[in-house]
């Protein structure tokens, strides 16, 4: 009788473990879909204390960065990247670590800075934080001098909630840089933006865009005049004249939006 009971219990245990295995895998897949961040980083072996340890790591990192001797030593950029990478493995949603770290790395190693911000994007930390893709775009634009590479980051930042106006105007600026600030093309880029801006709340941005268009229109007119004078080809002259007319039309269209006194607003 006792042996029969033990056999029944053994069967219960075996069936129980099989059931548990199935349930655990279902919950694992569910949790994976809930927090993508943890999937993007290697598993840590800190008894579930990762989040708390990320704070400790953050405080020691601040002390390390504040130490001049450490930061001026050779290879400090690589060390900083490794420390930030380890820290963000503990807490993949640690936006301040990504942003402050990327700013510290931007001047010496823009690729590492962008790689850190890309990790933030991959782990989902940028879903509600426009600063992460914006910083990545700025670093590509200003430090790497690669406007083409900056554009996707600005586009991503623009799609993030609560994004400020200047992110879009920075994107427009980056587009102009990507065409080497060629006056006619740049003017058209700004004009497209200007035309899109509607409503009274867009007045300030329209004024800023109109000022930029007017500046580009001046350089475009001067450049086209020189080209028209230099060319002997009638077809080319006609095309250049048509371009000049278009530039004048756009300049006239935006003239009323230009503020009377020079605006103190930054261009981007």
């Amino acid at each position: 009788m006792k042996q029969k009971t033990n056999s029944a219990v053994l069967i219960f245990v075996l069936v129980g473990f099989a059931g548990i295995s199935w349930v655990a895998n279902q919950i694992f897949d569910w949790k994976k879909s809930l927090s993508q961040a943890k999937v993007a980083v290697p598993t840590q072996f800190y008894a579930g204390m990762d989040k708390f340890l990320s704070n400790v790591s953050w405080m020691t990192l601040i002390q390390w960065q504040a130490d001049d001797l450490q930061m001026k030593a050779t290879g400090s950029g690589d060390k900083l990247y490794q420390k930030l990478n380890a820290l963000t493995n503990l807490d993949p949603m640690f936006a301040d670590a990504y942003l402050d770290g990327a700013l510290s790395l931007a001047a010496s190693n823009p690729d590492q800075a962008v790689s850190l911000l890309q990790k933030a994007i991959d782990s989902g930390a940028a879903a509600n934080n426009w600063k992460i893709p914006f910083y990545a775009g700025q670093i590509r634009l200003m430090n790497s001098k690669d406007a083409e590479a900056a554009l996707p980051y600005f586009e991503r930042a623009m799609k993030t909630p609560d994004v400020p106006d200047y992110v879009e105007s920075t994107f427009i600026h980056a587009r102009c840089v990507s065409v080497n600030e060629e006056p006619v093309a740049s003017m058209k880029i700004w004009y497209e933006y200007f035309s899109r801006l509607q409503g009274s709340d867009a007045d300030r941005r329209r004024a800023s865009a109109a000022t930029r268009i007017s500046e580009y229109a001046e350089s475009a007119t001067a450049a086209l005049d020189m080209q028209i004078q230099a060319t002997t080809d009638a077809d080319k002259r006609a095309k250049l004249s048509a371009d000049r007319l278009e530039v004048e039309t756009i300049a006239k269209d935006v003239a009323s939006a230009i503020p009377a006194a020079p605006t103190s607003l930054p261009a981007i």
Binding site: I20, V23, A24, N25, F28, S35, K51
Partner: peptide
């Protein structure tokens, strides 16, 4: 194997 082990991480929602 994963399913049979005690998966305490499934219960850890402190970070989230």
């Amino acid at each position: 194997i994963y399913g049979v082990l005690p998966n305490l991480n499934l219960l850890n929602t402190r970070g989230e």
